[in-house]
Design a binder for these strands. Structure first.
Lengths: 194, 194
DNA sequence: TATATACTTGAGCGATCACTCAAGAAAGCA
DNA sequence: TGCTTTCTTGAGTGATCGCTCAAGTATATA
């Protein structure tokens, strides 16, 4: 048996997923056409479908990438600042990430856009959001164990409210004429009162 | 001069705008096709364009209707419960409105979907959101004047945070597996601490 | 009843949608 | 160098998009 390796793709599949995530994040699912992706990824239709199979398949990869990096960033933040510090810093970080294609959460945007259609991608976005919420709950739990916040509150409920606040903050941050930094500061201050 | 009035439309234009608002609210702008509207409004293409001019024009009317009714409901609530009572009841109301086509705010969904395209409808949604924020600020101001909450906080800042919280709440309420009523209760409880 | 006017109908417009596939180009192994 | 395999190219698929318009129908006035 002979193993042929006659040609490698000229593109970096991983980098393409990153770029696709940015386009989808900014423009949404219906708002992003194959033409947009071909232009942004510099891929002809044939190569695109050879690499990813379909627009939805690539969107799923982009969602997964987005969620993975979100968890990783939060975890790294907690290692640097501790559980409470991370929870307080996160609001500031998400609205000031200058390189990001949008302020609003891609998972939330996906869910809001596609849930009414019962689209599979909405379900996947929901799963990723639940993962994020579990991260938040874990941080609240660790902050309690570290004595940084009172043990009187249910970490799950704190996480639910915190995630809701972040979603609102990030949506608000999309608008001009809204002082998102004030909102972020207020959310962080709320944690001091726990 | 003779005035002819040979025939009236067979439809109730006002009711059609309501129905269109519900479809757009649920499915979004790109997610709603002319076919959807024709089926839902029972209008053939010709009648549709004679009545509304374009999909975007009808969407603008639907947005306007949505915002008007939102302000009216909040105003009525304040007359019944007072300023502070209205602010505390509103979170509960918006997530438990059983007849509504969606929990999330139509203005926010519109803004999130269309802002990246610099679509005019996103601008209009932003204007309506600013109007809503002004309502909130007014209620906070009146609650302060009535001695229901402390005068120490800036009503504008309170309104900004409150609107952000409501956006997050209503987005969260779209998801199953999220206890939106707990979040609504927490938001209402926050107002008691002012 | 005859007429003028507006509303209703639905086939069909060009553009764009996600996607396919046959042909040509490129690269590793003999 | 020649062969095999994969990648790249881009014209083209049927379906659907928002929208138009000519023809037909209904109705209030004269």
């Amino acid at each position: 048996m002979v193993t042929w390796m006659p040609r490698k793709p000229s593109y970096d599949r991983d980098a393409l997923i990153d770029r696709a995530r940015d386009v989808f994040w900014r423009q949404g699912w219906a708002g992003t056409s194959l033409k947009d992706l071909e232009r942004e990824l510099k891929l002809n239709p044939g190569s695109f479908y050879a690499a990813f199979g379909s627009k939805d398949a690539l969107y799923a990869l982009a969602l997964q990438r987005y969620a993975q990096e979100g968890v990783a960033r939060l975890t790294a933040l907690a290692e640097r600042l501790g559980a409470k510090g991370a929870l307080q810093e996160q609001p500031r970080l998400v609205i000031e990430a200058t390189g990001a294609p949008a302020k609003a959460c891609m998972l939330a945007k996906t869910y809001a856009e596609l849930q009414a259609k019962d689209h599979e991608l909405a379900g996947q976005a929901g799963v990723h959001m639940a993962e994020m919420k579990a991260c938040f709950a874990d941080l609240f739990r660790r902050a309690q164990e570290a004595g940084e916040i009172s043990p009187d509150h249910d970490p799950e409920r704190l996480a639910t409210r915190y995630q809701s606040d972040l979603l609102g903050l990030r949506l608000s941050a999309e608008r001009s004429n809204v002082d998102a930094r004030a909102v972020a500061a207020d959310i962080a201050a709320d944690i001091d009162r726990l």
